[in-house]
Computed example of a mutant assay.
Amino acid sequence: MGFLSVLSQAQRWVKDRAGPGDCVVDATAGNGSDTLFLARTVGPRGRVFAFDVQAEALESTRRRLAGDPDAGTLAPAELVLAGHETMEETLPAELHGRVAAVMFNLGYLPGASSPLITLPGTTLAALEAAIRLLRSGGALTAVVYPGHEGGRDEADAVEGWAARLPQTVAQAVVYRFPQKPASPYLVALNKR
Rank of each mutant, 00 (worst) to 15 (best):
A170P: 03
E85Y: 02
A77N: 04
M87N: 01
D52L: 01
R135V: 01
V99I: 13
I131S: 01
R12E: 09
A139S: 12
V173R: 12
Y108A: 02
A57I: 13
P76S: 03
G2N: 09
G150I: 12
A155F: 03
K15R: 15
N31R: 08
G21I: 11
E94Q: 07
L140S: 08
L134T: 00
A170Q: 14
L109F: 09
V53D: 06
L38D: 02
T141E: 02
D156E: 15
G121R: 02
D153R: 08
T35Y: 01
P115E: 13
V173D: 13
G32H: 10
G19P: 04
K15F: 15
D52W: 02
P115D: 14
V25L: 04
Y175V: 14
E88W: 11
V158G: 05
T73N: 05
L106T: 04
D70C: 09
F37V: 00
L133G: 00
R47D: 14
L58M: 15
F104L: 03
P110K: 14
A29Y: 12
E59R: 09
A66C: 11
D156L: 14
A157M: 08
R152P: 04
E59S: 15
V174W: 13
P115K: 13
S33Y: 06
A71C: 12
V174M: 09
A172M: 11
R164L: 08
P69D: 07
G67T: 07
S5K: 13
M87G: 00
E94R: 07
V25Y: 01
P92Y: 05
D16F: 06
D52P: 06
P166C: 09
T61H: 11
P120E: 09
P76E: 04
G111V: 11
L4K: 05
Q9V: 11
F177N: 13
E78P: 00
L140H: 11
S113M: 10
A27P: 14
R63C: 07
V102G: 00
L4D: 13
P181V: 06
A172C: 14
P146F: 12
L116N: 08
A55F: 09
G107T: 13
A39Q: 05
S5Q: 14
A162I: 05
R152Y: 14
Q54W: 10
G46H: 07
L7M: 12
A162K: 03
Q167I: 14
H84P: 02
G30Y: 00
A125L: 05
P184V: 15
G97S: 07
R40H: 07
G151A: 12
R17I: 03
M1V: 11
S113P: 04
L119E: 14
V143C: 05
S8M: 12
A57P: 11
F3L: 10
